[in-house]
Amino acid sequence: MLKVRDLSVSFRTEQGIVRAVDGVSFEVGEGELLGVVGESGSGKTVSLLAVMGLITDPNAIIAGSIQYRGRELVGLKSRAMRVLRGKEIAMIFQDPMTALTPVYTVGWQIAEQVLAHQRISKAAAWQRAIDLLAEVNIPKPEEAAHRYPHQLSGGMRQRVVIAMALSCNPALLVADEPTTALDVTVQAQILDLLHKLRRNHGSAIVFITHDMGVMAEIADRMLVMYAGRVVERGTKEELFRVPMHPYTQALLDSIPPLTGEKPRRLRAIPGTPPILLNRPPGCAFAPRCAQRFEKCSAEPELGNGERAAACFRVTA
């Protein structure tokens, strides 16, 4: 249902052009959960903001193709995009503390979205808001609808954001690190809720996170991003059991285990993620890679298959 081909997002800055997203391609099937993993600056958030048409920076240049159910979204008029956004494609944000307008009740904010896309009465929209709050397990939804964001805890606010995203039964849900800002017991509640909602609504979800543990729990298929590019693609099972790209492997190795024998030292990845400004040619991970060889000074291609990794060790 969503086909992204060769998507690039660059930002013009005073120091030069920053290629935040560089030739990213992926697909999302109906009802599927695609997990996108990467560290800060890997381009995972920017590429999904591009899908949502939410990059408003006048210095951004977006190239490539984003097709939603056969419709091209790149270059779509903002009016046409607005009709899709919030109705067919909805988004959940990282920080629930700042994602809601502070001066309106949460019920009002949910009803506002319903009214923007459906021809129903205000009373019906309010009732819909209450039903949605109940669906995301907010206790006493009638009362909660009258509350302002600052009166709710972080977990409750994230539920409100989720309720809002679900308000028009979107076919595609983009979730940008929806549990990162939450405590681990609250994260468990929210992941549980997303599981349930997925069963009930059948929306496809693109889930962005840096947490491999969360990924292991919810993803069907995964993309691993590094420095603006997709470095590995495959199903969750393939990626966790037989990681192909050295970066994926290293990422999994560097996480301290929760059970079993404690390693004396963690297997850390040396160095730091590259700066995207005026990036040198070649594999971006090569400077930190334990398996690099002569070929890595060229740019490795990510194959076209369902299972692929952008690494010369794999393709060689």
């Binding site: 977990g155 409750m156 543990g213 990924m215 292991a216 729990e217 966790f240 285990p257 059970t259």
Partner: peptide
């Protein structure tokens, strides 16, 4: 608290029975 931590290990994930606490 321990059971709520998502583990990046598919086998451990399956055997782990998560206790989801209610409320905040």
């Amino acid at each position: 608290l321990i059971s709520a931590v998502p583990v990046p290990d598919l086998d451990a994930q399956r055997s782990n029975k998560r206790i989801v606490l209610t409320g905040d």
